[in-house]
Write a protein that binds this DNA or RNA. Structure first.
Ligand code: SF4
Ligand code: SF4
Lengths: 158, 158
DNA sequence: ATAGTTCCGGATAGGAAATGTCCGAGTATT
DNA sequence: AATACTCGGACATTTCCTATCCGGAACTAT
């Protein structure tokens, strides 16, 4: 799994505490990560329609929907790409004992098993929303923790 | 996920149809894949204790346990490595608004969510055994399909 | 209108990991 | 004991991810 997913999730969570757009550079400074690379992840989120980007002087990124309507799965798919983790090479159609192509109409048992497992993982991610994560952060680090970060985001750069 | 997992699973399934050791070169010829690279995957399986290797003239690989006792998860872990797909960089401890290290005793909400999803995937893989896969192959391609492959494996190279 | 700020896209190095290949150690056969 | 065959780990090659940079478009505030 791509490591940039972690950055994107953090950005989505902190964006719940502010309604005005936040520039990518500010988000990068908050986490002390590569500004240019984080910008690329945010662009992916924008393409997926999860965040809305406003250009210009006081522009930046902001969530498009309510945090309760954004699932973790959507963020992962947007950044990591929707490609399945397991790709079947169809090696059953190769070699001296290859099964004829006419018998390969449906996915085989192995790929079915992998698809089932992957579906389970995706379903688990789908049931968790950004709002849930923000809630957990509040309970972990005390209420108002996110508001403090939101206030820092609004301040003009150091 | 490593693509070699597919090869390893195929080898485990076909090995259920034969009790004598099968050389790695024969398995590679059956699937028409790189013999040397497949050998690497089989070595990983051997290290994990899933297959037993016998050297010498009529040596090769054979399953150590009954197929019902080998789960797909074990094969995946052996080949792909037991490393978790999502690794937390602990970026919460970096940047101007870093949370103090004293508050980072437990994994945060994001890593908990990822761990839950990964556990769901692993649990799904744990419930499927090699015997289940072999059974499905028999129902898909007709009974005796695996026995035919087993017979071919026993014949001396073309 | 102008200037300043910001996002967007692609082109470009660097590096880690997966993929693919090789030869030596060891064992059963002969 | 000689031999032929096999596994085992060490060695290149390729691919993909990470990270960076720049030019251009669009928007806001002045
Ligand atoms: S047996 Fe399954 S995983 Fe293997 S080649 Fe066929 S469809 Fe793909
Ligand atoms: S919030 Fe979670 S994922 Fe992010 S740095 Fe902390 S522990 Fe890691």
């Amino acid at each position: 799994m791509s490591g940039g997913v972690e950055w994107a999730l953090h950005c989505c969570v902190v964006l719940t505490s502010v309604r005005e757009p936040v520039p990518a550079a500010r988000l990068a400074e908050l986490h002390d990560v590569s500004p240019t690379y984080l910008a690329k992840q945010l662009q992916a989120l924008s393409r997926a329609g999860l965040v809305h980007s406003t250009q210009g002087k006081s522009g930046g990124y902001a969530l498009t929907r309510s945090p309760e309507l954004i699932t973790v799965l959507e963020v992962v798919d947007a950044v990591d790409g929707p490609s399945a983790a397991f790709v079947c090479t169809e090696i059953r159609q190769r070699g001296p004992m290859a099964t004829p192509a006419e018998a390969c109409t449906t996915p085989c048992a192995i790929s079915r098993a992998m698809a089932t497992a992957e579906a389970a993982r995706r379903e688990a991610l789908r049931t968790i929303t950004i709002a849930d994560l923000a809630n957990d952060v509040e309970s972990d680090y005390g209420a108002g923790a996110l508001n403090g970060i939101g206030a820092w985001l609004r301040t003009t750069g150091a």
